[in-house]
Amino acid sequence: MTGEPMTTTTPAPSAVGPPPPFDLELAAVLDVLGDQMSLPVTVDMIPAMRASFAQWRTSDEDLSRGGAFEVQDLSVPGPPGAPAVSLLVCRPTATSAPMAAIYYMHAGGMILGDNRLGLPEALDWAQELNLAIVSVEYRLAPEHPHPAPVEDCYAGLVWTATHAGDLGVDPDRIIVAGGSAGGGLAAAVALLARDRGGPPLAGQMLMCPMIDDRNDSPSSRQMAGQGVWDRNANSTGWSALLGAGCGGPDVSPYAAPARAADLSGLPTAFVDVGSAETFRDEDVTYATRIWQAGGRAELHVWPGGFHGFDRTAPQAAISRDAKAARVRWLRRVLQA
C-alpha cells in the first residue's frame, strides 16, 4: 500500500445493470396494453383486480371446446378442519382408457384468479397429448394466508391420486403444473408429496414460478418498476400470503419453495422464465439447485420475456417457441 490517502468507495452490493431489453414483439404488445399491464399492485387494489380478472373468466362453453372435453366441477374434502375444495375436471371425451393428468394450479400472485385462469393452454396440451386436466380452486390470500392455499392444493392432489380410477386417470402419470403463483404452488405441492409420502408425481411443470418471498434477487431489483409483476407487486403478493413473517427467517419451504434446504428426491422438473422479469434469478437458481442435488430439470430462459409473456402475447414468435417447448417436455416425460 502507498501512504497516499485512500478514497474508499464501498461497492453497492445491489449493483445491477439496466433491465435486459424486452423482445421486440413483446415490447410492441406492452406498448399496446399500456397502463393496463403496469398498474402498481397494492393491497387496496385487490378487490378491483379480482373484479377485472372475473370478466375474463373462461366460460363452460369455451372449456368444452365443442364437446371435445367433458367438464365437471367436483367438491372434494379439503385439508383437515378446512372447507371442501372444488376441482374442475376436464377430460377428453374421445378416450375412455386411463390417461395421464395435469394437476393444475392457477396464477394470480396468491391473491387473484380462479381455477379457470390459464386453462386454455392446459386444454391445448390435453387435446394434443390426450390428457385430463384437474384444476384446483384454492383459497386466496390475504383472507386466507399460508398454509391455506398450498394445503388446499395438496388436499385436492391427494384426492385426485386416490380417486384416479374414478376419473379415468392413470395415477402413475400425474404431473403438477402451474404458472407464476401456481408454479410456486406446484413446486410446494411436489415438496409436500415428497416429505409426506404422498402421491408419486410424474413431473412438475413450473412456468415462471413465484417461489422466493425474500424478493431480493438481482433480477427482482433490476426489473423494479419494469414490465409485468415487478418487485412491488411481488411484495404485495408475498405479504398477503405470509403477513409480518414475509422475508423473515421462519418462512416455510411449502410457502416459498426457494427456502427448501433440500431439493433432492423431487419429480423431474420443467422450469421456464423470461430474462426480463422479477422471477428470473430465483427460477434459474431453483433449477440449478435441483441439478446440484442430483435431480432432473429442464430450464428455459426466454430472452426479453416479461412475466407471463406467452399468455399476454401468445402470437409472438418467442411465445410460440416457449409454449412448444412445454408440449415437447410433456410429450417426452409422458411418452405420450
Binding site: L24, E25, A28, A317
Partner: peptide, 29 residues
C-alpha cells in the same frame, strides 16, 4: 387512447426495433 392509437403504437415499436417482415405481418394478422 382508441384502437387506432394502439395499432400505431404496435407498429411504431416494431419499426423502432428494426423488426423484420415476419413480425410486421404477424402484427397485422
Amino acid at each position: 387512447a382508441g384502437a387506432a392509437v394502439k395499432v400505431i403504437a404496435y407498429f411504431d415499436r416494431l419499426i423502432e426495433g428494426q423488426a423484420g417482415l415476419e413480425p410486421i405481418v404477424r402484427g397485422a394478422a
